[in-house]
């Protein structure tokens, strides 16, 4: 206490530290709180990972090994035969070409559906926020209301509409249906995101003389990467995992992977080949899984930026 404070701060004249706590408070790793948190986290991750583990392990076993009954055991040898069969020669209904045609069908459905639906929704959201027109709020309400109507209610009318349009049972039909059903949630997403951008930016661009499309492409789009990633993930996973619209609208030539997976697994003929079924299932789920792994971080950021701020 007798020390006088000096501005020079030379170490030699620094006050002698007294005994007792000093600096940051030590934080022990094993506190009750942490133990509870980590136990819970580990438990739930195991809970969710276990089915995946069983699927992957079973897909690498041979049928005799599976019949042995120990489903948790590791395979005796790494054996990808079942994966190959699932991809190229498993029977999906009458044909026995494996899942690969279904994979390419799903690609043909997913890519155009995703692009078209996201583009239209982005323009919708942009127009709803920045180019308010008479009745724009009502239009938006109706659009949102659409997302509360169960699909099954609209299924039959849509079948009739696509039939009248002459596209029932073709790729354009299923792409159109996916675009329509993606519209409410995607428009909401984009509208909220564009509403969170400063309005003055839009005004400045208008004073600078830019029009509807110029502002959209040169000002708004470059700022919207996070929300595009969110929309991309939502659409790719949603459309890839879709079964109902694929089986109804795509036609027998274009059945998506999910439908063919169902045909493999639910095959009534012969003995069920569990290893092939498991391999086919993992293969089908691979695309959404990869999308999540690649863009998970951007996804979280985009959701925080766009969907939460109203």
């Amino acid at each position: 206490m007798s020390q006088t404070a000096t501005m020079s701060g030379a170490p030699a004249s620094a006050p002698v530290p007294e005994a007792g706590p000093r600096g940051p408070k030590p934080k022990p790793f094993f506190t009750p709180k942490r133990i509870i948190i980590y136990t819970t986290l580990v438990f739930f991750s195991l809970y969710f990972l276990f089915p995946l583990y069983i699927m992957v392990v079973t897909s690498m076993k041979t049928m005799p090994e599976i019949r042995f009954g120990n489903i948790f055991a590791l395979p005796s040898a790494l054996n990808f035969d079942a994966w190959g069969r699932a991809w190229t020669s498993a029977c999906t209904g009458l044909t026995c070409n494996g899942l690969s045609p279904g994979f390419w069908n799903s690609v043909k459905i997913t890519i155009p559906s995703t692009i078209v639906s996201i583009f239209i929704a982005a323009v919708n959201g942009y127009a709803l926020v920045n180019w308010r027109f008479k009745g724009s709020e009502i239009f938006f309400s109706i659009l949102i209301f659409g997302s509360f109507i169960p699909y099954q209610v609209m299924l039959y009318p849509l079948v009739m509409i696509t039939r009248e349009m002459g596209i029932f049972g073709t790729l354009p039909a299923v792409i159109l249906i996916h675009t329509i059903f993606g519209m409410p949630i995607l428009t909401l997403l984009f509208r909220n995101y564009f509403a969170s951008l400063p309005q003055e930016l839009f005004k400045a661009a208008r004073v600078d003389g830019a029009g509807f499309w110029r502002i959209f492409f040169e000002i708004m789009l470059p700022m919207s990467l996070p929300i595009f990633v969110v929309a991309l993930i939502l659409q790719v996973t949603g459309i890839w995992n879709d079964f109902l619209f694929g089986v109804v609208f795509a036609g027998t030539q274009n059945l998506p992977m999910t439908v063919q997976l169902n045909n493999i697994v639910n095959s009534a003929q012969g003995t069920p080949e569990y290893n092939v079924n498991m391999a086919a299932t993992v293969l089908t789920g691979l695309v959404p899984l990869i999308i999540y792994f690649v863009s998970g971080k951007l996804f979280v950021r985009g959701v925080a930026a766009g969907a939460v701020k109203g």
Partner: peptide, 28 residues
């Protein structure tokens, strides 16, 4: 707005974030 012979400066600056200063100036 562009045909009125006005220029406007906003409170939040409203600069186009993805463009350089030069591009911002020359956009109009």
């Amino acid at each position: 707005p562009k045909d009125r012979g006005i220029g406007m400066v906003f409170q939040s600056y409203a600069l186009y974030p993805q463009m350089s200063v030069e591009k911002n100036l020359s956009f109009g």
